[in-house]
Design a protein around this nucleic acid. Structure first.
Lengths: 230, 230
DNA sequence: CGCTCGTTTGAGAGGTCTCAATTTGGGTGG
DNA sequence: CCACCCAAATTGAGACCTCTCAAACGAGCG
């Protein structure tokens, strides 16, 4: 691993407060691997062997039930995934596949658990990160149960626009993935976009333009208790 | 608080491994309050002041979006709620109200955070409990996105029947609450029960009978990665 | 006994899904 | 650089699921 990769990972909330020895030991025993797009990294039902850190690229977390499948989240640099399964030494609830050429750091689960026993600051960071993820999942449930598909899309667009600080968004992945992330079919996403056209949303390919933010917000009714990043 | 109440709380996974002083301090500064049914204990958007432990009765966690409302979970003795908000000193994402006459222990959030700094075993238990809740929430998302209403009901019934070890279930709360917990309307729950009639499910009032577990399971396709308790 | 509230049933509208047919747009190879 | 090609996206039709509104039913309680 390159020194600046290590520096970026070190700056993650999860590792920033850890002691030097703790971080060194975690990184020393970790593997940094490159993957082409479309590779399955983990399968639900497998034992949680590694904490994963996306250093480069894009990873999709998804879940299945019989033949049905849904996208649970997209992890981009620098983000971690399946912390909970690692901590409780459980099996994965979600599968993961690369959407782009990616670079992933894999830290042995055992080392993470060991580090918690010896580094209180790291443990505190783990708690904070876990609680953050927990709250994200709760918000996801709220969005799914309380909003329609078009509302979820509208709020996703608003959030994205705010993050990019513009009225023009470029989708970071295919619409098919977005539809699954929002809990609908690709066909339905198209129709949701058609609905939002009456609120100033136009799309050409992957480029979405929000002509009237206020009108879209009036429809979406964004709520920090559902849309907030944490 | 009565000594045996303290003993029950002490036996919770969250507190079982804590040092004696830690537990004593937490309980010493806590309030044990009784509430009649229908009382709102906390409101989403309020600051997280207390970790709540349901000692007796039944508490409903719910969330709202505009005029819409949905039940997030039901907490029964002895269970805790809103741990994540307490740990990260954030606002509540969910509201809570009593469904029955209840007794709730309220531990000041600050004391919980303090205890984590001084008691590593307690901290470890907090991590485990958090991760458990996180995984529960992920499973909830999976169920909502991957299953139909009737399927969610069927799996809920199977889980309940297994817990009670019988083919006959008595609903622990109103069907209205169950419908909201499962993410549908009361009318739709009735129709879901009608669907399950063809799979051996009959109901008279709050008493549900599963005549043919195998047939119901064939319809529900229970999955430990969605239905499991943790 | 009769009220009240939860539940059920019915009808109709809206939302979502599947299947199928086009259209679009990006990527590749000539 | 361009034409082709294929996957992704859109559009349409019909079925299914879910929601709302309304009314009837039933159980529990005063």
């Amino acid at each position: 691993m390159k020194p600046d990769d290590a520096a970026v990972i070190r700056s993650l909330p999860l590792f920033a407060d850890a002691r030097e020895e703790t971080f060194a030991e975690l990184v020393r025993t970790a593997f940094l691997q490159r993957f082409p797009p479309g590779v399955t990294l983990i399968n639900e039902n497998d034992e949680a062997d590694f904490l994963h850190v996306v250093v480069e690229g894009q990873v999709e977390l998804f879940a299945t039930f019989g033949e049905r499948e849904t996208t649970m989240s997209i992890v981009e640099p620098v983000g971690t995934f399946i912390l909970a399964a690692v901590l409780n030494a459980r099996i994965y609830l979600q599968s993961a596949r690369t959407l782009q050429k990616s670079q992933v750091l894999m830290i042995p689960a055992e080392k993470v658990r060991d580090a918690m026993g010896t580094d209180a600051a790291f443990t505190r960071a783990v708690v904070t990160e876990l609680a953050r993820g927990y709250r994200r999942a709760v918000k996801e449930v709220k969005g799914q149960k309380l909003r329609t598909g078009a509302e979820r899309l509208a709020n996703w667009l608003l959030q994205r626009a705010d993050a990019e600080g513009a009225g023009r968004i470029t989708l970071p992945f295919e619409k098919r993935v977005l539809s699954s992330l929002l809990g609908m079919t690709p066909e339905n996403l198209s129709r949701a976009f058609a609905v939002l056209k009456t609120h100033g949303v136009t799309s050409r390919g992957a480029v979405i333009t929000l002509a009237d933010r206020a009108a879209l917000a009036a429809f979406a009714r964004p709520d920090p208790l559902i849309d907030g990043p944490e």
